[in-house]
């Protein structure tokens, strides 16, 4: 409190949520950024993160609306609430960016990632890998006499857990897509609005 009896960071919401919670604890946030699918747009977004020293834990991008030339970039980033707000504001002022949604604060969301894991081995280890894959509902998409390639989909933590289990069983290579995320329920982020 101060002389004018206005609580610091009081929260009457304007169009922009510009009153951060004043915490210095770093949080992970998943951002959905709708952009015009034009040359250089991904470079603008990535350049913003590298130029201003923000973190990218994961980033995925693909066109989601062919006729409207819209792509959706899903970024998992990390920072204090003030930094997260700054990241969103900086993203928002990139000209081809239509909207920036913070899925972490805008209600419940589902996050999924796909990974391919190559596990090489023989004997018991090979059998155990296949058994665990079944438990994790990973499917075998390639098989030789001494290797499997598993495909697994799920939250990043689930993929981490599966990879940890596969490591002693002969995990030799892995590719992950990064997180794709959508809010739960019938509300949708569409073009324009």
């Amino acid at each position: 409190m101060n002389a004018l009896q206005i609580k610091k960071g009081s929260t009457k919401h304007s169009a922009y949520n510009l009153r951060p919670t004043f915490s210095d604890v770093e949080e992970a946030h998943t951002l959905a950024v709708l952009v015009d699918n034009e040359a250089g747009v991904l470079a603008r977004v990535i350049g913003l993160f590298s130029g201003r020293g923000y973190n990218i834990d994961s980033l995925t991008v693909a066109e989601v609306d062919h006729t409207g030339h819209l792509s959706r970039i899903t970024i998992v980033t990390r920072g204090t609430p003030q930094v997260i707000e700054q990241i969103k504001a900086q993203l928002g002022r990139i000209v081809p960016v239509h909207r920036v949604h913070d899925l972490t604060v805008e209600g419940p969301a589902v996050e999924r990632e796909l990974a391919l894991l190559k596990v090489a081995g023989a004997g018991d280890k090979r059998v155990e890998a296949l058994r665990l894959a079944d438990i994790f509902r990973a499917s075998v998409v390639d098989s030789t006499l001494d290797s499997f390639v598993f495909e697994i989909t799920g939250a990043p933590e689930k993929i981490d857990a599966f990879a940890d289990l596969m490591r002693p069983l002969g995990l030799i290579e892995m590719a992950r897509t990064g997180v794709a995320a959508l809010s739960r329920g019938s509300d949708a982020y569409r073009q324009g609005g």
Binding site: I6, K8, G9, S10, S14, A15, Y16, L18, R19, P20, F22, Q82, E85, Q86, A89, Q90, G92, R93
Partner: peptide
């Protein structure tokens, strides 16, 4: 006029974009 200017360096109590 630039939302990214607000709370960038100094945290403010009354932000007006």
């Amino acid at each position: 006029i630039d939302p990214s200017s607000i709370n960038k360096v100094i945290r403010v109590d009354i932000p007006i974009v």
